[in-house]
């Protein structure tokens, strides 16, 4: 493979993984946009979804992509309950409170999973593996990654349709824009919040399933993914679905380019590049690249 071939293959891989990053970010960014809560346990919900896929895959022999049928409803319920029990208490509070409570939640989730399944890295195996080769140029499309991208795009489109076309989706957007006004026109704000949290957690769990066949999963993978979600959200703007896709692909491209062309950085490249992107974006364009990022309330 010469240089240009390598470059194009790297770009393809970056875009494929970018879909996963995009859908992974949505839950984080919609929760932040609607409720104003920065969910530091985001990566842990992702990890939980991945572990559910792994358990069903290894212990019950399910095809990982099929486990979505279980993961989506279970994670929705989990999110709904957690919202009512915990998150609802911190919505109106200063950001510090929300950060610390979700951080505590993250610790609880990670250590519980570690307690049950140990800290060994795991991976799911899917039947859809191998490569599709192109006739031109000899580039290859890894089948699993392609399926992941397709699933991710479907989910993103589903959420987009839900938020923009359905009545309930519209009430979520109304609640995000003006809570009092939404309450005034008869929207039950607590139910809307709980359902939003549930949907976002379901999506996040599904994203966790999508990454489970691609790379190893372990109980403490969460923080890095939260950081990635934060970086992409900072680029995309809150609740901006196309922006999240673009931002995810950008991160995917940067990561893959760095990993291919800068030797020795190895596995740490993801975290370093997302951190670099995050700081650059936050410092230079605090309003986000593709749209408005709401100014955070000041910590009091």
């Amino acid at each position: 493979m010469d240089f240009s071939d390598l470059l194009i293959q790297t770009l393809i891989n970056g875009i494929l993984i970018g879909g996963l990053y995009g859908v992974m970010t949505l839950g984080f960014s919609v929760i932040w946009g609607v409720m104003g809560v920065i969910n530091l346990a985001h990566g842990e919900f992702l990890m939980l979804g991945a572990y559910m896929a792994w358990v069903l895959n290894k212990q019950q022999g399910w095809e990982p992509f099929l486990t979505l049928l279980v993961i989506l409803p279970v994670m929705f319920l989990l999110g709904y309950v957690i919202q009512i029990v915990l998150i609802n208490r911190i919505i109106e509070k200063p950001h510090l409170i929300a950060l610390l409570v979700t951080y505590g939640l993250a610790i609880v989730m990670a250590s519980t999973v570690k307690l049950i399944y140990t800290a060994n890295p795991r991976i799911t195996t899917t039947q859809f593996s191998g490569y599709w080769e192109f006739d031109f140029g000899g580039f290859v499309l890894p089948v699993t990654k392609t399926l992941v991208l397709i699933a991710a795009l479907l989910m993103m489109f589903g959420l987009y349709f839900f938020l923009n076309r359905t009545r309930f989706g519209k009430s979520i957007r109304a609640a995000a824009q003006n809570k009092e006004a939404a309450r005034m026109v008869g929207i039950e704000i607590n139910k809307v919040y709980a359902a939003t949290f549930g949907i976002c957690i379901a999506l996040t769990g599904a994203a966790g399933m999508l990454l489970s066949p691609l790379g190893s999963i372990h109980p403490f993978m969460g923080a890095a993914w939260t950081l990635k979600a934060f970086a992409i959200t900072a680029m995309a703007g809150l609740g901006n679905i196309p922006g999240a896709l673009l931002g995810g692909m950008m991160l995917g491209l940067v990561e893959n380019l760095l990993a291919t062309f800068v030797p020795t950085v190895g596995s740490s490249v993801g975290i370093i590049s997302s951190f670099a992107l995050l700081v650059i974006v936050l410092v230079t364009r605090p309003q986000g690249l593709f749209g408005g990022l709401k100014a955070p309330q000041e910590i009091r």
Binding site: H95, L96, L99, F230, A231, I271, L278, V283, P286, E298
Partner: peptide
């Protein structure tokens, strides 16, 4: 230069 949660997350990063 970052405010509130942005600073917190940048430092976590």
């Amino acid at each position: 230069r970052l405010k509130g949660p942005y600073f917190s997350i940048a430092m976590l990063g």
